[in-house]
Nucleic acid binder design. Structure first.
Lengths: 167, 167
DNA sequence: GAACATCCTGCAATTTATTCTCAATAAGCT
DNA sequence: AGCTTATTGAGAATAAATTGCAGGATGTTC
């Protein structure tokens, strides 16, 4: 999981018979300049680029994030929001994992280097080559617990943070 | 992550103001009698029940697996096949994790108790209550590596196992 | 064990993320 | 510079998943 530059991305693409394009470079650049802890859906990525005057079609966005995920440059997160999110696949010490609340989808990150180590060991043992590993912990968040989850919780109740997160 | 019976399921549902129904019982029963290592999509679950003369509508299937996942009875797997799969959320020693190949979606399971232990520790530290934890390792499988992945691999090539898996 | 409140199911219609198609364009190789 | 072929953009198509609603079933209460 190396850190990529435009030219190292180009080199790796070309080595596989693929091509560097302005679109791919812009997407890489955007992710590399995203504040830590942010992850974007294809739609959000599209709107963000649009806002910067960098119109890239939604089809290309989808194709690019998929390609870059398979290359190990991005990681695809499935954090219960109903659509995939993407973030840079960063090497140690920024590699991290997620805790998600099933009640409100609140997500927090945590670091744990031993998980990557154990994953490497396991994949080598099986003859696979590691691209990424993600530990996703499904939980009930403290706020929902304080509210008396599960019985005392109205079915439409949602943690305050969850509501705030819907921008 | 306890092992459920029809009556313990009913007790837990009722404690939350929910109800036991024949549909929910049949779904639990089916998962409990599934060969180890099998996981089903909503669609597959629907067809399987259909084949047993237990017609349950697809909406109900979707609603049930979602409910049972949030209760911690099932676990929702997102293993790159394009739709979610479900399996029993089993306690130690059957709790397991997955390695997935991005080239062919081949999936293998592996056991590792320390991951559950570390997850418990982490969630308690943050004040969350654990429902499930899944380590998903994204990889290139040995077969794709032998074929010279990535450069020598035609874009439409797929590991033989992947093709065989499409029944 | 009958009545009641409400939860659940099934059906059909709908939503929405993602993929596909295809003509035009542009990247990389010689 | 020319050639081959990967890539893009736009919109149509696909498919998983959700929702609204009317009728039926469940758990609770007295």
């Amino acid at each position: 999981m190396p850190n990529y530059t435009a030219s190292s991305l180009k080199a790796e693409l070309n080595a596989r018979g693929w091509r560097m394009t302005p679109q791919r470079e812009k997407i890489l650049y955007l992710f590399q300049n995203l504040p830590r802890g942010n992850h974007l859906s294809a739609e959000e990525l599209h709107d963000l680029l649009e806002g910067q005057g960098e119109g890239i079609s939604l089809s290309t966005i989808y194709r690019s994030v998929k390609l870059m995920s398979r290359m190990g440059i991005l990681r695809e997160l499935e954090l219960a929001e109903g659509h995939k999110h993407y973030e840079l696949n960063q090497p140690y010490p920024h590699h991290h994992h997620h805790i998600v609340c099933v009640q409100c989808n609140k997500t927090i990150e945590f670091n744990n280097d031993s998980i990557l180590k154990q994953s490497l060991k396991q994949t080598e043992k099986e003859g696979f080559q590691l691209i990424d590993c993600q530990l996703t912990i499904t939980t009930i968040c403290p706020e929902a617990l304080r509210m008396g989850w599960p019985s005392a919780l109205p079915s439409n109740w949602s943690c305050t943070r969850a509501i705030a997160d819907k921008k």
